[in-house]
Design a protein around this nucleic acid. Sequence first.
DNA 1: CTCGGTGCAAATCGTTTGCATGTTG
DNA 2: CAACATGCAAACGATTTGCACCGAG
Lengths: 140, 140
Amino acid sequence: MSETSLPEILRARGLRLTAQRQLVLEAVHELGHATPEQLHTAVREVAAGVNITTIYRTLELLEDLGLVTHTHLSHGSPTYHPVGEDQHAHLVCRDCGAVSEIEPEVLAPLAGELAKERGFRLDIGHVALFGTCGDCGETK
Amino acid sequence: MSETSLPEILRARGLRLTAQRQLVLEAVHELGHATPEQLHTAVREVAAGVNITTIYRTLELLEDLGLVTHTHLSHGSPTYHPVGEDQHAHLVCRDCGAVSEIEPEVLAPLAGELAKERGFRLDIGHVALFGTCGDCGETK
DNA sequence: CTCGGTGCAAATCGTTTGCATGTTG
DNA sequence: CAACATGCAAACGATTTGCACCGAG
């Protein structure tokens, strides 16, 4: 369902289908949001010899092909997730680090206003909002 | 006006006032949003010997004191800016990299909804929204 | 058979840490 | 004078690059 046929997309560009590319794409689908390192670990469980370098290069390729995207959730490494499926934005708690998702509808009015007033097309899938989550907020 | 008296805040905590701390704080005010590296360059123009390590340590301190904050605008290094003054969020164009500011009012309704539905207190000053700016959007 | 893809090692970039010396209060 | 701050060098984690070998088409 979510498979937009990697082999075909690759062939269309004269690129080659390799086990690594399939495995990385699968891992991105399985893990939801994952850092390159996490993807590396996941892929290794199936194919032990895969190098982290290949993960990076493949992610760049897949992003270029429009199959995955990445978001920066606060600090550290970016996280990758599949394109197309459930568009969603992220809510990141600065205290406990928890990440939750919010539905795109919540951002729709904001996106509309930015488009109208600024001509800015908001990329909802990449939105990360920082703040304090309910749990951490109560304590204080 | 924006000077909330660094010397006093430091003294209140038993910390010391040094030339470096004053210079870094001034640089943050001057540059608006700036990366540690940019701040280092700016400070160096006045005091050549200041080490990048000191920039990092000082930024951490100033942030702890509530005088500055940082935001992650897409990739790479965080950018620091003064606290207190104009609270603002950022709009980052993924194509040309341009960063513009938006007034907090635009985010107020969203912040309100998140607070009500999730108990999530949005930190407006840290918001970075990614998308395509007007100029880049036209072309496509 | 050819060219793109991969693995490996080394280079790079941003940031952090340990330690000896310098400076503020 | 004592505690704190700084500079310097080395350690680090994440990502990138160069190059020789391997495998898909």
